[in-house]
Design a protein around this nucleic acid. Structure first.
Lengths: 197, 197, 197, 197
DNA sequence: GATGAATGAGGATTCATTCAT
DNA sequence: GATGAATGAATCCTCATTCAT
């Protein structure tokens, strides 16, 4: 049976939403929420100025949607890493490689921006807050503790260790933004040193 | 001898400039150049909206002034560290502590913002460029090489090592922004691990 | 054939540009560049405050555009007059009538304002300079000399004569501004006396 | 008897008023009321920014004062010319020379500006109106009529003739503003042609 | 659905005026 | 009286959002 007219429209609808989100993610990640003009997103998505408003009520809503999804992705990645075979060190190493992978750069930068900037809408802050305090740390901490028990990770407060680890990743990604193109994922081992003995 | 009238006026002048710069540094560091409204700086400095313009031609000029000074401070800190007694490791350790010190937080964040953001005026970029490419690396690299020769630092391209080190500091400072108040300078040793064997 | 969509948009574009230029010319001619608020132009053109900025980058650019066009028109009029049949006196007489004609009033006043005022942007001054020194005088002077040779014009330095003539026109136009509506073009002959024997 | 303290103060007072008025006249004549900043007047008068406000309530009041005085001077000159010996032509000739004299340039330009511009306060317009409609023409017209009767002036509506005459003077003064320094008073005779047979 | 023209609220900047010294 | 620092209303301009086509 041929797809109904309605289904076709829905497909256009979804395609547009993805198109806009993709463009917005890239520009927001580079320029922050205030530094980004809706016209930039439209240009990046190769659509007209007004079209985004058919799919997103406002710039703010678009931003929040992206934050939400980025946090969900990050969360999924954190959950996934624990299913992986290997020692905690190998697991964290894989996670790090994934984060540093080109395709995950923008969501990570977006989260970083939303975490740090005072410009973002309160609701975005809440989403970050929600995920950050409840989920990921709860998930990674056991890994760190296990790593310490196995003698692979260095001693000390595992929360502090995790915090340092996140800082390194963050710092590296931000530097990356400047040295676009260069790929640091091969140097993951240098980063691993910070948590290992 | 009582200060002359002119001296008194100059003192007011200087006091105001410092007052405005201090307020602006704080707000710019938190919100970036676009996210900062002149009214915010005025509020932070507890002056009227128009007064900043007596001392700085524009928001842009104010921003550039702060970048310039922050870079000079950073440069001075980098130069200073080499005069210190002790091994390269001890020197870098001291530098790190200084950078992470509460009082140096805003200049560092400002530089970070100006380095990464696409919104800053070209002249600010130039200043960063000028200092970044000419000065600090030229200065710190010998320290790293010496550290490697002494067997304290880990092997590999010293530029890459330095880059990682800077990333870590950056990341930590940005996380700090969120955990305002907490003082990480005592945990410098964790950071040192990234460059040591 | 029906006009394509693109053509229609272009027509709106051109129509708006004309609408804004017409309104701006009128207000600028009356109030000068500083005395004119963009809101006045918007009101005169019956559009919103922001719309002018779609078509002209700034008040200054709008002003310069108008000056440029006014000078080009004036230049064309000066060139045209020499093609006309008749004696130099008759030619100048026609030129005078054209200048004093209602429809040419605003461009002339605008030029007058830009020539005299210290407030106009340097680029506007340059345009005036360019045309004034290179073109029109070079063009009218031969006419004056010929008029003198024919014994129609009074003796003396033709540049000085031309200068007086221009002064009279200028003065009359400015007075006209106050006696809006009254039409002096019929009294051109009184003006002619200043250059004739 | 030595002047009392109060008298001395009054003298300072008057001196300041003259100083400010002189400076203001010059700047207003060149730049119009909107184009003139109070700081320019202060600079021209070599006094501080705030001092003018001790002697004039506002920029507007200062401007109106100057217009008032300029109109009174012009009026006096018009009255005076009729007391002079000689034919109407000689009288008008003398008047013209006086107007074109360097020292009377600024008041005349000020009046011209106030007459033509829409920027000036209504009260200034009223003053102009008052003098223009009531006085000077009432005064000069008889002179023109007498000149016509004597066969010196050309025929036609004397009001129209006067209007032309004023236009020429105005135009010349405005051109003068651009060719500062050059002195046209010697060429008065060219101007006279416009009213003579 | 898609376009891009149009609107207008908001932010940077200027400058007349006030005020502390 | 004199100074010039300080204020804030008013103006230029930008850009998120709406709307006619």
């Amino acid at each position: 049976m041929a797809p109904s007219n309605e289904q076709k429209l829905d497909q256009i609808h979804l395609k547009r939403i993805e198109q806009i989100k993709k463009a917005a993610l890239k520009v927001f990640a580079h320029r922050g929420i205030i530094g980004t003009k809706m016209s930039m997103i439209a240009a990046e998505a190769e659509i007209s100025q007004g079209l985004s408003y058919r799919y997103f009520k406002s710039k703010e809503e678009l931003f929040i949607t992206l934050i939400q999804e980025a946090m969900e992705e990050a969360n999924a990645a954190f959950q996934h890493v624990q299913q992986l075979p290997g020692t905690p060190l190998e697991q964290i190493r894989t996670l790090t490689q994934n984060i540093l992978d080109e395709s995950n750069k923008y969501p990570f930068l977006l989260i970083q921006h939303a975490s740090v900037s005072d410009e973002v809408p309160p609701k975005a802050k809440q989403i970050i807050e929600h995920f950050s305090t409840n989920v990921p740390i709860e998930q990674l901490i056991p890994l760190f503790i296990k790593g310490q028990q196995l003698g692979q990770f260095c001693e000390g407060d595992p929360y502090k260790l995790l915090f340092c680890y996140m800082s390194v990743i963050t710092g590296l990604m931000l530097q990356e933004k400047q040295t676009e193109g260069k790929n640091w994922s091969e140097d993951v081992d240098i980063l691993m040193k910070i948590i290992t003995k």
